[in-house]
Design a protein around this nucleic acid. Structure first.
Length: 266
DNA sequence: CGCCAGGTTGTCG
DNA sequence: CGACAACATGGC
């Protein structure tokens, strides 16, 4: 067990559409990354992690991006614009997780024209079907090689629909080295986008999500239907790059803000 | 039944 | 370029 001061909000962070392998039962979040299962809950002003201090330091500190100063980011964003200030106040408990790049890429390929519960199911079945068994009865996310060696027939039980062929394209291009995931972190953002979009089924939005959530490029700014609504309504004169180096964080706060906002009917 | 879901592709005009 | 249907699947 590891206890730390609550420097983020698990509910907001794990249920904001950036990651699809976390579920809350009672007051506890359970999830998997790197083939390791973790339980996490908030107790008052503390977060309690169900792992050893060693594992916390070697895995989860980085995964939850605990060494990035979100207070400073929120200060900068809040000073930019009154709507952003509200979004920061409302959704500021979110951290951008440092997910595994290949997993994030596949997750957002699966996410297209899809809903979150179904995305979670497809990813779960993908891991159980093609992933290597890991600790705790969990499964690693399958490697590009393993996925490239599979077929549409083998992927059929995932019920991923038309996205299955996109997963195969991704797996093949990555395996062939035409999309070099190791090289992406060193690329200019625009070059990285172009590279990811070589994959059949990866367009601007999925590429942007992979960059933000899988490669922690905090200047990436995914524009989905909700964010297009945000831009029309509150930032008609602004472009994504106007949000600066923390645009991706702003995007995530605004996304969470407008979605819950609309659910409560304005 | 029809509509929608953190889109992309292919095809028209 | 910009608009628009088609694409699998499942929940409401």
């Amino acid at each position: 067990m590891v206890r730390i001061p609550a420097s983020f909000d698990p509910d907001q962070t794990l249920d904001c559409g950036q990651s699809f392998r976390w579920e809350k039962t009672g007051d506890t979040w359970q999830g998997v990354a790197f083939g390791r299962r973790l339980a996490l809950k908030q107790e008052g002003e503390e977060l309690v992690f169900s792992c050893t201090p060693e594992e916390f330091e070697s895995l989860w500190r980085e995964y939850f991006d605990l060494d990035t100063n979100y207070n400073a980011i929120r200060r900068e964003l809040s000073a930019m614009d009154p709507v952003l200030e509200k979004a920061c106040a409302y959704a500021g408990g979110i951290r951008i997780l440092r997910q595994e790049p290949w997993e994030a890429l596949c997750s957002f390929i699966i996410s297209q024209n899809n809903n979150i519960p179904r995305i979670k199911g497809i990813i779960q079945r993908l891991c159980e079907t093609l992933g290597e068994p890991a600790a705790d009865g969990e499964f690693l996310f399958p490697t590009p090689q393993r996925m490239a060696s599979s077929s549409l027939e083998e992927l059929a039980p995932l019920r991923a629909g038309f996205r299955a062929k996109y997963l195969l394209s991704a797996a093949r291009l990555v395996t062939e080295g035409k999309v070099d995931l190791q090289a992406i972190p060193h690329m200019e953002l625009e070059k990285a986008r172009e590279t990811l979009m070589l994959i059949h089924g990866v367009g601007p939005k999925v590429a942007e999500c992979a960059l933000l959530y899988g490669f922690h490029r905090l200047e990436a700014f995914p524009l989905d239907v909700w964010m297009k609504r945000v831009m029309e309504r509150w930032f008609p004169q602004k472009k994504p790059e106007d949000f600066g180096p923390w645009a991706g964080v702003a995007q995530q706060y605004l996304f969470h803000y407008i979605r819950t906002f609309e659910e409560e009917n304005l």
